[in-house]
Write a protein that binds this DNA or RNA. Structure first.
Lengths: 127, 127
DNA sequence: CGGAATCCCGCAAGATACTG
DNA sequence: CAGTATCTTGCGGGATTCCG
């Protein structure tokens, strides 16, 4: 985006920024992706997630699940049994999101070393 | 990922999570993407960014630029003139990252309405 | 089992002021 | 022009406790 002119192209790219940011907000947060990932291979129960995701607190699990459900990425199903049973299932939209995340993962894997080197160079140069 | 078993597939997916998270950490932060985007069409100067990116503070601009430079996503070039002139240029790695972000943007654009509806439904149902 | 409520803390980020 | 230095605040997230 040329910041010098004020034509439409700047607007377009600004909207692009916003769109990306909205995705990132949705997916950011320490646990969202982990939860989504854990639910990809079929319905998962609350306690399964709690045990399976390393380091997550009960609170954050609940909160993140609520947000994912709210955004329509997860479906919450309650079985009125005793003891209660609740299952979380990823929606089709979430699967598509996951597919999109793959290219990002691929980028990260390709450039992990480059970044590590860049950091090391930067850090040792400045000190 | 089946959280019940402890086979390799769980490990693979856990690593996938970590890789994605590393990307997100790099790109998260309120301003990183905006700055990257603004620098995509050629070298950009500090003040250009400050004026072009809506709402960014001088401090956050500096900090974000430093981090992007440190990770090798941006190159900082100083021209020892007076007044000083500094140009920031995206690296090839950053361009590839941007390309990867496109599929994410595409996903967001496809599902923006769906998400908005989901939220509204969720919010009105719970209240 | 699957939560909700409450308290607490660190850190990202804003505001403001000064400088080579 | 292109920063740095402080001070301050908001909020994400952890720990703990209680509940249907």
């Amino acid at each position: 985006m040329s910041l010098r002119n004020t034509d439409v192209s700047a607007e377009v790219e600004h909207e692009a920024t916003c769109t990306v940011l909205q995705v990132l907000e949705r997916v950011s947060g320490k646990w969202s992706i982990g939860i989504l990932l854990a639910a990809m291979n079929g319905p998962v129960r609350f306690t399964e997630l709690e045990r399976g995701i390393n380091g997550i607190s009960r609170r954050m699990l609940t909160l993140t699940l609520r947000n994912l459900e709210r955004d329509g990425l997860l479906t919450r199903t309650v079985y009125p049994t005793v003891p209660p049973k609740v299952e979380y299932t990823v929606t089709e939209m979430a699967r598509e999101l996951y597919d999109s995340l793959r290219s990002l993962t691929a980028w990260a894997e390709r450039n992990l070393d480059t970044i590590a080197t860049a950091r090391h160079t930067y850090d040792t140069a400045k000190r």
